[in-house]
Design a protein around this nucleic acid. Structure first.
Lengths: 243, 243
DNA sequence: CGTACCGTTGAGGTGAGTCAAAGTAAGTGG
DNA sequence: CCACTTACTTTGACTCACCTCAACGGTACG
């Protein structure tokens, strides 16, 4: 079993929420008492699309891929969650079955919080509800990657956007002027995030490499010039102002 | 000026929320006192992308198109709101600038609710917060139309989905076995909803007509067989089960 | 009767999907 | 340590749905 350190000690998001919502010790104790900690192996399903949503999941370590499979059997990924992020909240508060599948990209440790506890927290502290409303409102859910999936933007550009997002989420190393970081996902997952096929991702990668914008070797991304990467973003964007 | 009937009398959504959240008269009075009613003409902007979000808008009559314009100047519509629907709540609770533009498709009457009132309602009644959290969680926002914009689904099929959604939202008439209803939007808006171009929509429409699935003349949609229309939905969906 | 907007139709180009096959990396068991 | 399996990645050839551009028809309104 995992260490029994409290949420406070490990910098858990739920703890932050309870704390910033101006709640006393009692709220934190409530969380601690009902918290369930689980470990997942790489590849494990944390929850599955269309299964009932019972808990709120709070990542302590590891990475999780959230994806949605439509009626046509097409898988679209819309979020990569990391430590200190909460997942499953949309279905939880929507009181709906899970709209997405969560899969462990790496080994993960996750805290589960049950409905009675969360409801009690909401009832006793309006601030807590307010913080969560903010989270819900800001999370675009499957739309998070709206840019990433707009058909009018070429795969190459969408990939660049994704890299810029990933860069800020993953640990970035700097070696002799080059930034580099590790991708937490496979080609096929990148494809799912971009709404493209793995082959197209490969082609976009080799194009970007050819043009010296970024190099992606296996899981390692190397950026010679961040400026150059940002410039890529503007490709074909002579921004015809909207009506 | 518009009639001063209370929200209760006109079946306003906000009133429902306050009522079902088990709140007393006081909550409803609070709403009534601070409510501002406005009229908009067809084509008017109700709020604009990137402008600060100050109020919650509750439609009393008319139809509103919600759309988002990306950095490339591409407009994507993601929702058509009608009477008794609330708009602008995502930015309101996200405490962000508006992520979308709301435009009146027809003449509209809309109630505005200000932040202090809403906050007070949340603070005094956890049930009210809970109801709104449910709304926020269930609203996919710009992703609502995820199916409608999946590139892997042909425009023709996406259009059929849209028609099925519209059918349930608009008043449907039945004349000698044929269902028919009015589209509240222009071709260009349909295109924005589908993530396609107006020309492609036209082509899809004429194809569907040729195959006798639906007829769309100007704004009037005629459906000879609902069964046939649903069947259209399955086009090319030999559902290769996802991995 | 012109202006303006919407809708339709046609011709042409292309980005990305599909299919198929070869190359590479990683784990397993003898 | 090496064959063998399995999974992931890359490359190439082909096809097609949709975009783009451009012209034309229809309807409303001054």
């Amino acid at each position: 079993m995992v260490s029994s350190l409290g949420c406070a000690k490990i910098g858990c998001k739920m703890y932050d929420y309870v704390a910033t919502s101006g709640m006393s010790e009692s709220g934190i104790n409530m969380l601690e008492l009902s918290r369930i900690t689980r470990n997942y192996q790489r590849g494990d399903l944390i929850f599955k699309q269309a299964s009932p949503s019972q808990e709120l999941y709070c990542l302590r370590s590891g990475q999780v891929l959230l994806s949605h499979t439509d009626a046509f059997g097409h898988k679209t990924a819309f979020r990569v969650a990391g430590p200190r992020e909460i997942i499953g909240f949309r279905s939880f508060f929507g009181e709906d079955d899970h709209a997405a599948t969560a899969e462990a990209l790496t080994n993960c440790t996750i805290c589960l919080h049950t409905r009675p506890t969360i409801n009690k927290l909401i009832d006793t502290c309006p601030g807590f509800a307010r913080v969560f409303m903010r989270t819900l409102a800001r999370d675009r859910g499957p739309a998070d990657a709206l840019v990433l999936r707009g058909q009018h933007v070429p795969v190459r550009t969408r990939l660049v956007y994704l890299l810029l997002i990933m860069k800020d989420r993953q640990g970035v190393k700097e070696t002799k002027g080059n930034l580099s970081f590790e991708l937490p996902v496979l080609r096929r997952d990148i494809a799912a995030l971009l709404g493209a096929r793995a082959e197209s991702v490969t082609r976009a990668i080799s194009e970007l490499k050819k043009d010296g914008v970024v190099t992606i070797k296996n899981r390692t991304v190397t950026i010679p010039s961040l400026k150059r990467l940002y410039a890529e973003t503007q490709r074909g964007a002579e921004a015809k102002a909207a009506s």
